[in-house]
Design a protein around this nucleic acid. Sequence first.
DNA 1: AAAATATCTTGACAAAGTCTAAAATAGGAC
DNA 2: GTCCTATTTTAGACTTTGTCAAGATATTTT
Lengths: 144, 144
Amino acid sequence: MTKSKIGLYLNKVNDSVTLLRECGIQPTPQRIAVIEFILNTRSHPSADQALEQVRLQCPTISRATVYNTLNLLVKKGLVRTQIIREGTVVFDCNINQHHHFIDEETGNIYDIPWDQLEVKGKDRLKDFEIVEFQVILRGRRKKK
Amino acid sequence: MTKSKIGLYLNKVNDSVTLLRECGIQPTPQRIAVIEFILNTRSHPSADQALEQVRLQCPTISRATVYNTLNLLVKKGLVRTQIIREGTVVFDCNINQHHHFIDEETGNIYDIPWDQLEVKGKDRLKDFEIVEFQVILRGRRKKK
DNA sequence: AAAATATCTTGACAAAGTCTAAAATAGGAC
DNA sequence: GTCCTATTTTAGACTTTGTCAAGATATTTT
Ligand SMILES: [Mn+2]
Ligand SMILES: [Mn+2]
Ligand SMILES: [Zn+2]
Ligand SMILES: [Zn+2]
């Protein structure tokens, strides 16, 4: 279990502990609960949604600790934030480049793999030095 | 002066009055001040930034009126909101499709014309019915 | 001018997020 | 194990963004 395995599902507490240690974060029960939740969901939750879920495992955890831990994980590069929902930042365990589709009816956020879309014409933007980019699509997810 | 001229700079109070009337909005001094500000800036301000600026012209206007008026203009289709800044919605007087570049140093938001970028591969997203999309780029604007 | 509408302002409220200081906890030295 | 210290957690205060309701103003209708 190395940092390079981020993004795979972690089912064992041991994996989370190892991962936290590798990042120089002391693995407390609260932090373990947060990291196990956030690295195992693809739902792009807000901090308060994370709090709600983490409390199922760790009922006494405080709001400040969830915020602190999520921000710490962002700083260490284990998760990232996305600005795609109104009113709140969401946390994304997919730290590779990718695009997003937002279902406007449900609010659900779906990852679109990086290689599924190609953005042409960026070279023509002479005035801008692009550090990162993504396509954000909105609409409805088709029922199958 | 018709609704089709939205997006051009409005310098005369008369134009704003006409535009508001065309949308079925009674042109009060407060609403005129808001629309003159928001349709003449390309800076993608938040509601509170708009309040600050509008108060230079109309010092007694309340926060609620600025929020109400901006939301009314959105409902009438004169401006739109964008979710590209952390913590707050921004208002955009450019209601045509376009992309955005965010300067991460200054926070400035720049419009990228629709035809400067092309997004290929959308047809392959069989599970999704796309209503709208845009490319969001982040980085630094080059000094000239 | 009086009544009825429409609009604006104020202040209360809620949600998202940060911060502080005290309490709890964990680790190391002995 | 006890003591000491550094780290962590917690509760609550506070800020910002945004909405809402009630009363005050302004405008329109009669
Ligand atoms: Mn809010
Ligand atoms: Mn905030
Ligand atoms: Zn994602
Ligand atoms: Zn724009």
